[in-house]
């Protein structure tokens, strides 16, 4: 600042252009700071939820969920609706994104586990709902991609995932995730084409009849391996028509229909041919 002093402070300060230049500088500074800060606050859905998003979620909750789960998510026992105060954002993301929630008709759909319904909520709305429910208590949050993405695993990792899958999942979901029957009309759905994020959420939140597999029992690294195994085993080419992929039941059916069926036709053909020497 020496040159300012030597050249005469007073003259510079009193320069005709001093005020407009200072104004322009300060405006620029404000603009720059705003530009740096403003986007960070508007995209906070991926980070810590902000008040605005929670408020939006609360409104959506009041309209779509509160009739069964209560205005403060405390649950209504007579509706069979559980309290959602400690389920976390992952449960909301899973239930709403897969069309399980909100239920069309709780009295008929509860038995069918609310499957097969189309999700009509946008990503923003689901994020807001999840943020609101997450703000009510504890519970697993919506996962980030590095928690579930099966990219970059070695062949041995995926094979190990298969072993883990057969130990933990195939009893209900079948050896390649085709699904299976559970008592009392419930089913373990097919997970052959399920989104990896939803598999992660299902493990952590235990929807419906499914038990919770917490990260203490199966860390994220192992979940990734299992997800990779299900993806790859279903992408493996089959040795011919898979006949429904239901195991020996469909094989036996086709042995009779295609095998014995065609051979009986051949026998009839042979028997109708006389001796034409």
């Amino acid at each position: 600042m020496r040159f300012l002093a030597s050249a005469g402070r007073q003259s510079l300060r009193r320069h005709k252009a001093a005020r407009p230049v200072l104004l322009a500088l300060s405006l620029f500074l404000v603009g720059a700071v705003y530009a740096a800060v403003a986007p960070a606050t508007t995209s906070s859905a991926e980070g810590a939820p902000n008040e605005q998003l929670i408020a939006q979620g609360k409104d959506l909750f009041a309209v779509n969920c509160a009739s069964c789960h209560g205005l403060n998510a405390e649950g209504l026992a007579q509706q069979g609706a559980p309290a959602l105060t400690n389920v976390g954002g992952a449960a909301v993301d899973f239930q709403v994104r897969t069309g399980r929630m909100p239920m069309g008709n709780p009295y008929t759909q509860a038995q069918g586990q609310g499957q097969g319904k189309q999700n009509t909520f946008s990503d923003d709305e689901i994020n807001a709902l999840a943020a609101y429910v997450a703000s009510l208590g504890t519970g697993p949050d919506v996962p980030t991609e590095d928690q579930y993405s099966p990219d970059g695993l070695s062949a041995e990792d995926v094979a190990r995932g298969g072993d883990l899958f057969r130990t933990n999942c195939s009893a209900c979901h079948n050896f390649k995730g085709a699904g299976g029957a559970l008592p009392n009309g419930y089913v373990a759905p097919s997970i052959e084409n399920t989104d990896p994020a939803q598999i992660w959420e299902a493990l952590r939140t235990g929807p419906g009849q499914m038990p919770v597999f917490a990260s203490g029992a199966i860390p994220d690294e192992d979940v990734k391996k299992m997800i990779a195994y299900v993806e790859q085993v279903n992408a493996t080419p089959s040795a011919g028509l898979t006949l429904g992929g239901l195991g020996p039941v469909s094989e036996g059916f086709w042995a009779w229909v295609a095998g014995i069926g065609s051979l009986v036709l051949a026998a009839i053909w042979i028997a109708t041919r006389g001796a034409r020497a």
Binding site: A171, P248, V249, G252
Partner: peptide, 24 residues
């Protein structure tokens, strides 16, 4: 395709799968 054992995996007494049936 019949009996795709590579999809079933090796036997391990701790494991079981839905849809376990014998041949017809």
């Amino acid at each position: 395709q019949i009996n795709p054992v590579w999809i079933f995996g090796p036997y391990n007494p701790a494991q079981v799968t839905a849809g376990s049936q014998p041949d017809w």
